[in-house]
Computed example of a mutant assay.
Amino acid sequence: MNKSIVDKHKNFLLSDCVMKEIKYEKNDICLTFNEYGVWIRQDEKKYERKENIQIRYCDC
């Protein structure tokens, strides 16, 4: 995982998103989504869809 993007987006919405894979490796949980990705909150009222994304929860 590219460390420069870790914690880049702290607010995301999983509505209408499809998860392709869930992995548990080295105390991290990795969620991989399909080509349509997830919704990322840009500000109070604006969301943008980000494609080909993976969300990683570290040290679980």
Rank of each mutant, 00 (worst) to 15 (best):
N27D: 15
I5K: 14
V18L: 03
Y36K: 15
D59F: 10
D16C: 00
Q54G: 07
N34K: 13
L31H: 06
E35A: 10
Q54N: 10
Y57Q: 15
L31Y: 15
M1L: 08
R49K: 08
L14R: 03
F12Y: 15
C30Y: 02
H9M: 04
I55F: 09
K8E: 01
M1C: 04
R41D: 02
S15F: 05
Q42E: 15
E25Y: 13
D43S: 06
Y57E: 14
D59T: 08
Y36F: 15
W39F: 13
N27V: 01
Y47A: 01
Y36C: 14
D59R: 14
C58T: 09
N52G: 14
G37P: 09
D16A: 01
K23R: 01
I55V: 15
I53T: 07
N11L: 02
I53P: 06
F33Q: 08
I29E: 02
I55C: 09
I53Y: 00
D7P: 01
R56C: 09
N27G: 03
L14Q: 02
C58R: 14
E35L: 05
E44D: 07
W39P: 06
K46L: 10
K26Y: 12
M1I: 00
Q54P: 01
S4P: 12
K23N: 00
V18N: 06
Y24R: 07
R56Y: 04
K46H: 12
R41E: 14
K10H: 03
N34I: 06
M1A: 05
